[in-house]
């Protein structure tokens, strides 16, 4: 099973009421052990288990409602496997969001 980024369900679908994205979530699906802490304790409940398996055999989380993320980084604080974190975006239009960091350090 490859760990390529998978588009969340509903990505590309028209959203009726668009809210400005306030946070970005970065997920390292290779490290995740599927404990579900981030999903259960996310205040705006924007994460859900992905249906795909990672190489360890767990279902990593994925972002289902990008517009709901506030970038509070509580998922990053809860993660026992250091596999997820969030970054807050302050007063920036959506198209100037910081790009994802390079994949160096990711196991093959």
């Amino acid at each position: 099973m490859d760990a390529e980024p998978t588009a969340p369900p509903g990505a590309g679908q028209p959203v009726e009421k668009t809210r400005r994205v306030r946070g970005v979530v970065y997920i390292n699906g290779l490290r995740c052990k599927g404990c579900g802490f981030c999903i259960a304790f996310c205040p705006p409940k924007v994460l859900e288990f992905s249906s795909e398996f990672n190489p360890l055999g767990y279902h990593p989380p994925h972002l289902v409602r990008p517009e709901g993320c506030t970038g509070c980084d509580l998922c990053g604080l809860y993660c026992p496997d250091f596999a997820i974190y969030a970054v807050m975006i302050k007063n920036e239009p959506e198209d100037t969001r910081p790009p994802a960091p390079p994949a160096e350090g990711a196991p093959p």
């Binding site: 390529e4 997920i27 390292n28 490290r31 994925h62 990008p66 993320c69 974190y85 969001r97 390079p102």
Partner: peptide, 23 residues
């Protein structure tokens, strides 16, 4: 797309971890 699965190095706690021993 907002979520990325390939981001590892920029995790704020990564600098405090011996990444070669993970998971």
């Amino acid at each position: 797309m907002t979520a990325r699965t390939d981001a590892v190095a920029a995790n704020p706690v990564e600098a405090f971890l011996r990444s070669d021993r993970m998971p």
